[in-house]
Design a protein around this nucleic acid. Structure first.
Length: 206
DNA sequence: CGCAGGATCGGCT
DNA sequence: GCCGATCCTGCGC
């Protein structure tokens, strides 16, 4: 199975060792590019979180995107500066976490490999299986304590922390989940072989 | 393991 | 009214 060429993004060197803290310039590009580049990054909220293993991209030209019909009170944060946090309520029940890329476009965080604050996540989720703690956009928001109070905030300030390794990850690509419009767009990205995805990626025939 | 139904809310047809 | 970038439970095979 052949992997598509991965381009190395020049990140600002504000981190330590082989990992760097992400800054606004990382997000100021097309959402699909950012969504792929975020795979393997480590996200924590008040020290609780882990490795991002699944993302999806949305942009204003996409009928499946909340931003498709322009700004509303609900999606206003999605039109903020790169690195703005966009949180919305899904199906009246769950919260979903996004990071703004170019204004009007964003990356939905769909799954995380739990690494930090396991006990807190287990308590919040009332569930101990690490495979299920953050395998889904609603689940990870519950585990990380994300709610509407985080909407519109900056990803680059407390309680958030986001870093990424210098080496690019092996990435799987596929169709997005749970949408009815523009289904064919290959804008879902995942860490190849991860056991912490919300759903497996369909094996690609080459 | 697959599928149906319910919870519950804002925005739009 | 209706539908969604979801998740959990219960039922049937």
């Amino acid at each position: 199975m052949k992997q598509p060429p991965r381009r190395v993004w020049r990140r600002k060197l504000t981190g330590k060792g082989n990992s760097v803290r992400l800054t606004a310039d990382f997000f100021a590009r097309p959402a699909a590019e950012v969504a792929a580049a975020l795979i393997g990054a480590t996200l924590t909220v008040e020290g609780v979180g882990g490795r991002i293993v699944e993302t999806e991209a949305y942009d204003p030209s996409d009928p499946a995107s909340h931003s498709f019909n322009g700004p509303t009170p609900r999606n206003d944060a999605m039109f903020g500066a790169p690195g703005t946090v966009y949180v919305y309520r899904s199906y009246g029940i769950h919260w979903c976490l996004n990071f703004v890329c170019l204004p009007g476009s964003a990356v939905l965080i769909r799954a995380i490999e739990p690494l930090a604050g396991l006990e807190i996540m287990v308590e919040r989720r009332s569930l101990s299986d690490p495979r299920l703690l953050c395998a889904g956009p609603g689940r990870l928001c519950q585990a990380l304590g994300i709610d509407l109070s985080h909407n519109g905030r900056s990803l680059f300030a407390f309680p958030f922390d986001i870093t990424a390794p210098l080496e690019a990850s092996e990435i799987a690509v596929g169709e997005r989940i749970g949408i009815s419009r523009n289904r064919d767009a290959p804008w879902r990205f995942g860490l190849l072989g991860s056991r912490y995805l919300s759903k497996p990626f369909r094996a690609r025939r080459d």
